[in-house]
């Protein structure tokens, strides 16, 4: 390796080692640390009854739903932005990114006001006689998904937008002249070419929602715990770091099990161009 390359790599390697590799190793040693030295006690406790496996299942399920919904809403928005005049595109980017600039706690409290009993949503639905006065999306998975989608959508929208902008507009025109209408052009030309961006964006969303705990904690409450929240509870509440580390390890494994085949498929799709 050239000396310049080594020097350029050094800061990144240093930060990754201190901030990622060492902590992960420490979490792993904590997870496998039993009273008798090395052991699986912490994992045995996780699977002792159905509570924690159900929490893990909810975490994965919610993350998948959130990923799907962000893709369904975020990708078409990216298409609109890619076609919009420059000023409108800039305005939309600001609107999409703005939630990321707000503190997660403030943003979540905003959702409490909207989703809670007697909140904006309940009042509106009641006004049109679509729901009772005490309708509330608090402590429901729908509420959690809504609040998470709002903040995670920019990750899909912006990555898809950047791939869409790289597609030669002549390709769509060629497809139209050859007899494809708007929708078939979208299906055969635009979507396949935008796939790498959609895959990268939704992987980000999946990873971020699987590890989130503030928003699910505040909106889902204690009735709908996710792994992020139970880990947080073990670390700050009961101070059982070994058990927290075991849960963190399982969360990492779950995320990899979902993400790796997905990334693999994307690579194969990407290799065909």
């Amino acid at each position: 390796m050239k000396r310049e390359t080594a020097l350029l790599l050094a800061p990144g390697v240093l930060v990754l080692t201190l901030g990622f590799v060492l902590p992960v190793l420490r979490v792993l040693t904590l997870a496998f640390d039993a009273k008798t030295g090395f052991g699986l006690d912490n994992f045995a406790r996780f699977f002792a009854d159905s509570f924690y496996p159900l929490v893990a299942w909810r975490t994965v399920r919610l993350s998948l739903v959130i990923t799907l919904v962000t893709a369904l809403f975020g990708a078409p928005l990216a298409l609109v932005m890619a076609r919009a005049p420059r000023w409108l595109r800039m305005a939309l980017i600001v609107v999409v990114v703005l939630p990321l600039m707000t503190s997660v706690v403030v943003r979540t409290f905003g959702w409490l006001v909207i989703l809670g009993r007697g909140g904006l949503l309940a009042q509106t639905l009641a006004y049109f006689d679509l729901a009772g006065r005490n309708f509330s999306l608090m402590h429901t998975e729908t509420g959690v998904v809504l609040a998470m989608v709002q903040v995670l959508m920019p990750f899909v929208t912006l990555t898809v937008l950047s791939t869409l902008e790289k597609i030669d507009p002549r390709l769509e025109e060629a497809a139209r002249v050859m007899g494809a209408n708007f929708w078939t052009t979208l299906r055969h030309v635009v979507v396949p070419l935008a796939m790498p961006g959609l895959v990268a964006g939704s992987l980000l969303v999946f990873a971020l929602s699987a590890s989130s705990f503030v928003t699910p904690g505040l909106i889902g409450g204690v009735r709908l715990p996710v792994l992020g929240a139970t880990i947080y509870q073990q670390v700050t509440g009961t101070l059982d770091w070994g058990f927290a580390a075991a849960q963190a390890t399982l969360l990492l494994i779950l995320a990899l099990v979902v993400a790796l085949p997905y990334a693999q498929g994307a690579r194969r799709a990407g290799a065909s161009r």
């Binding site: 030669d168 002549r170 390709l171 025109e173 060629a174 007899g179 055969h188 396949p192 065909s272």
Partner: peptide, 15 residues
């Protein structure tokens, strides 16, 4: 319109 057209950049579908 059922026409044939060839573009300067050829516009072959890369995928």
């Amino acid at each position: 319109r059922g026409l044939g057209m060839m573009f300067q950049s050829y516009a072959l579908f890369p995928h």
